[in-house]
Amino acid sequence: MLRRSVGAIELRDVRRLFRATTGTLRRHTKEIVALDGLSLDVGEGELFGILGPNGAGKTTTIKVLTTLLIPTSGTATVMGLDVVRDAKEVRRKIGFVFGGERGLYYRLSGRDNLRYFAELYAVPPREIRSRVEELLDLVDLRPRGDERVEGYSRGMKQRLHLARTLLHRPRVLFLDEPTIGLDPIGARELRRIVRQLHEGGATIVLTTHYLFEADELCDRIAVIDKGRAVALGTPADLKSNVSDLSVVELEVFGIDAGTVERLRALDFVDSIVVEQRELRQVLRVQTRIAERAVAPLIAAVAAGQVGRVAVREATLEDAYVRLVGRVE
């Protein structure tokens, strides 16, 4: 028999339950299923995206893989090591960033934070200084490295986190919403670094709510919803699910739920998403008949309620909307 090649990451039927408490005086606990038998494989050197709506289980997946959560059942391995049994070995090999600015010692400078984490990751003492400077350079924080972290902006703290997790040159990286809250240039810069790490051969698992980001970066994407994978493939694969569809975007004013239901019932309408924007709404209608849908759609909405209309090709975001049936 051929030896099965071991992927960088394997999840097998991973279930993870949480107990949630409700009520102050009369407490009740109920079980929340965060992961519902999730199975995934990520190959070595792959840049793998996990998409899914809020509460889908993305962060939970990453916490299981980073040894921070013990799965209720099922198994997970990183570089062939079991995340529960061999947790200590796994920890040496991985790096991770949870989006957001917490998790730093605010009274210490950025440079001292990195030095301390280098100690935690047993970076050889002789290499610590040069490694820290190199990484401060990479994330563009060197000129501000001696300032206390409490004075850093959110983006600076997030960049520091990225540097923090690269100190020990991990082969596998987990990035949970790394660009959340960054300005467009900061986010682009961060994507550039991620791409660079990918080219350097690291295996990267990334979650994001920005679909263009996943499209731009990822080799493969898993869409998860309610703790299960609902789609898996390259961005092109996922887009091909909607390649027969076009999207008609109708700007409308004061439309009611009844009208939306009427539109949804039209036979050429595949799906509709309503996006609320201040005084107006945007209806995103997925349809197979492209421009020919425009006239009947306008006719179905009361006169004077329609503003701008545009027709475009379906994007990864539309593929995503079709899979999970809601916008974020």
């Binding site: 916490k63 980073t66 040894t67 921070l68 200590k88 920890r91 040496r92 991985i94 991770f96 949870f98 957001g100 917490r102 998790g103 730093l104 010692y105 605010y106 984490f117 100690e119 935690l120 990751y121 047993a122 923090r164």
Partner: peptide, 18 residues
């Protein structure tokens, strides 16, 4: 509270020692 607990626990260092 400051969010470093997960980072310490998921590092290879001994938490007891830290």
């Amino acid at each position: 509270w400051i969010g470093t607990l997960e980072l310490l626990v998921a590092s290879p260092a001994s938490f007891f020692l830290v």
